[in-house]
Design a protein around this nucleic acid. Structure first.
Lengths: 98, 98
DNA sequence: TGCAAGTTTAGCAAAATAACCAAATGTGTC
DNA sequence: GACACATTTGGTTATTTTGCTAAACTTGCA
């Protein structure tokens, strides 16, 4: 496991749409069509985001009938977010992008 | 705490130089000049990476004499990396950048 | 004060990422 | 097989990130 492998996971999580997807999937698997309702983006854009998460190993997909269902591969990803709550609270300029 | 705040933390960690810096600082604070020896990059580039980590709230700096020392603000960031070991292990194509 | 070492900031060009539209692919139903 | 629905892939453009050089600070010491 190289540094670059880990970096890919962080990169995958470093986007608001993808992070919200992960938080959504933490509550249970969802098909692409349901995820789409969460955002005001093109379905092709959503599909790309999901594939980034998949390539990073964060989610897995399964086709059932016409739909594709995504789920988290590793529930521990939630712990990461909990930790981040603490870290992000220490930002010098909360709310202002770095 | 917004999604964007969390995203900034992930973005900060989503770079090989910055991630290696975090892993280094996890063992204890270091001055910039020591960190510089870890990489083959310009010191101005290193300084920028450190400021990204600082703005994200991941590290804090302190000037003592001529040197500036950086340290992690939150040791829990290590748990994040441990979790990632598991997640990254599930990547479809291990070792190949997404 | 004046100089040297250590670090940060500014500005620019190259590379990576993101979003859209359009086209292609895969799956179930008739 | 043909059609409709769901999703992915290709291509293009706009935006963001990265890393360099050069310049600007900051601190300690002669």
């Amino acid at each position: 496991m190289t540094i670059d492998d880990k970096v890919q996971v962080f990169k995958a999580l470093a986007h608001p749409v993808r992070l919200r997807l992960v938080e959504k999937l933490a509550k249970g698997e969802q098909c692409v069509c349901v995820c789409l309702e969460m955002f005001d983006i093109d379905i092709s854009t959503l599909s790309r985001h999901l594939s980034v998460l998949k390539n990073a190993g964060i989610v897995a997909d399964e086709k059932r009938g016409k739909n594709v269902y995504y789920r988290l591969t590793c529930p521990c990803i939630l712990q990461v977010c909990d930790c981040l709550e603490k870290v992000a609270g220490k930002r010098k300029k909360p709310g202002i992008p770095v």
